[in-house]
Design a protein around this nucleic acid. Structure first.
Lengths: 331, 331
DNA sequence: GTTGGCACTCGATCCTACCGAGTGCCAACG
DNA sequence: CGTTGGCACTCGGTAGGATCGAGTGCCAAC
């Protein structure tokens, strides 16, 4: 799409702008390694790149800054992911040490990503509904309140408070758990919600309430971990931008939807308006799905300014996603 | 400590400064209800208040702003908590509707507090170690990995991944859970860590690992929920201040320690340097402990700028803490 | 003791001049 | 004919200077 010279000029502009956040002039580009023509030639090419929509001028007689299209081209054709040695080492060390609860590990993964990239990090956990149930239990908390606890194959625990409506004996609770176990073990949680009724009527009364609780709460089942929101305020100096971006990050459902949308479109980078969210117009999102046993179950990502260090972010997100998937596949 | 006239002048300065964020001049104070002297008299009194350390002047010939000491006097002697009708209604509605998992409820409580005050909200949950164990379970996830799951009386679930070191049969896991149950039910989780050894050696091997896991992970047992961090960026216009405050809020352990410190000192408001954290020099923290069955188990609080609406924040935090405790006591 | 009056202070705002990074264009060059 | 050095021009950013006005401290009068 762009000849080699234009491409190298675009690359130089993007790389310098990412570093300095200042419009880049032809002189600087001409000095850049990989560009071996005079600044006058660069000026001509930059004018062309501008009319083609890859660059923009904040005002006449200023340098150029990349447009979304410019970043897009950079990401698609010019940026190759690269992770410096110490970061790679950091990732390796992290996953070698990683152990314990899955939630803790996912939360720690966001910290790892913020540490690597200095951008806000997001990790969407595997959906609980999909995982196979390993254990079902009903524990009485009060005479007419019980807690449904299901342990899932991936180490997650799903629980629901069950209002029983009337006092129920522990024996009945145990029988109900037994009933649900025989019909639900080894299957996803969702299967429990539609499982066969129990013969015993008092058991079935409780089982029905459990099914109801499972059906209702299935919607908020996505787990998302966010970290490094403070890095957003370092990336922008307009306090209003910071506020609106933070507001987005606080809405877990929005974040999940956003990540899923991007992944579903087959992208690994969403730049500015590509995110589909107006407050993220100055942001870019770099994501990578991760898989457990070959099946995509979640996403890791970082959110930073459009003038983001894409090579670094792409590499970090890719390697972390891959290692996380591998680690979770081990169980 | 202050005569009535000085007090009403201080009150007027604080109240106007909270609204406008601008240094307050003698003219405005003289116009304020509750002050019925001329601006010249106000000027004299304000000069006195300044030399006594309650007010400060950003520069000569500007109005006055309250010092930490000024806010402190305002909070101690002049501010009476007041919650407007619709907020009170909102709190009532929230706790009437509140149900389900304790974590969800605590997280929703932070949202309630941010909604009420427009400041960042923090809720520290009841420590898990203290609650009585209602159920103990060991679920095999892999041949040599098990998940320890304890259901606590307050509806919380505590879990630990147990690396068994070698393959262990489900029967042994069940036996170990049984053993731990007989020794641990009804007691706090901490008691399990020091429970008696089992007779059967393969059971004891697993039990020992469980105790180990409980002992190690007991430290990170505090649960803290933060919400409304984006409100911080609305309260300050120095982006650097925003960044440092957000960084604090991201460190759960720091937040917990901060809240505990404040509560332990018997305060319900910590202003600026009283927080003991340099990045919070321009912030104030308003907290209220909450109790389950008469015992203080947690804290709710809001974090905003020192020029915070104290009457509203005090009232919101107090009523939410009280209602939350009551709600949790019901079980 | 309180108050109106007054001279004074000083940050904020606006204007202007100026600087310089950067541009577009053009003529010359290989 | 593409490339390049030269050059006039543009325009945002910065600095200096004038002005404005909110607010002060002080004082004399009530």
């Amino acid at each position: 799409m762009l000849d080699e010279r234009k491409a190298s000029i675009l690359r130089a502009v993007v790389e310098e702008y990412i570093q300095t956040a200042q419009p880049v002039g032809s002189g600087h580009v001409a000095d850049a390694p990989g560009v071996s023509v005079s600044s006058a030639t660069v000026r001509n090419e930059m004018a062309a790149l501008e009319s083609e929509g890859f660059l923009a001028q904040p005002h006449t007689s200023a340098g150029r800054i990349p447009t979304e299209k410019g970043y897009r081209y950079f990401v698609d054709a010019l940026a190759q992911p690269s992770l410096d040695r110490s970061s790679a080492q950091q990732v390796r060390a992290f996953f070698d040490r990683a152990h314990g609860e899955i939630e803790q590990m996912l939360a720690d993964t966001t910290r790892l990503l913020t540490g690597l990239t200095d951008y806000a990090a997001v990790v969407v956990g595997p959906p609980h509904e999909a995982a196979a149930v390993r254990s079902v239990q009903l524990v009485g908390l009060a005479p007419s309140v019980a807690l449904f606890v299901a342990v899932l194959g991936n180490g997650a625990v799903e629980k629901r408070t069950i209002e029983l409506g009337h006092d129920v004996d522990e024996v009945v609770l145990a029988a109900t758990a037994e009933h649900l176990s025989t019909h639900g073990l080894g299957q996803p949680l969702a299967a429990l919600a539609g499982s066969a009724p129990a013969a015993n009527s008092s058991v079935e009364a409780v089982a029905a309430r459990v099914r109801g609780a499972l059906a209702v709460a299935a919607t908020d089942a996505e787990h998302v971990f966010v970290n490094g929101a403070s890095r957003i305020s370092a990336a922008f100096d307009a306090v209003e931008t910071v506020r609106s971006v933070l507001t987005i990050l606080e809405q877990q459902l929005v974040v999940v939807t956003l990540l899923r949308d991007v992944v579903d479109r087959g992208l690994n980078v969403a730049i500015g308006s590509e995110t589909g969210m107006q407050p993220l117009a100055d942001c870019a999102l770099v994501v990578a799905p991760y898989s457990i046993d070959g099946e995509q179950v979640g996403t890791v990502g970082v959110l930073g300014p459009t003038r983001m260090n894409y090579p670094q972010a792409l590499a970090a997100v890719a390697v972390v996603g891959q290692r996380l998937g591998r680690r979770l596949s081990e169980g």
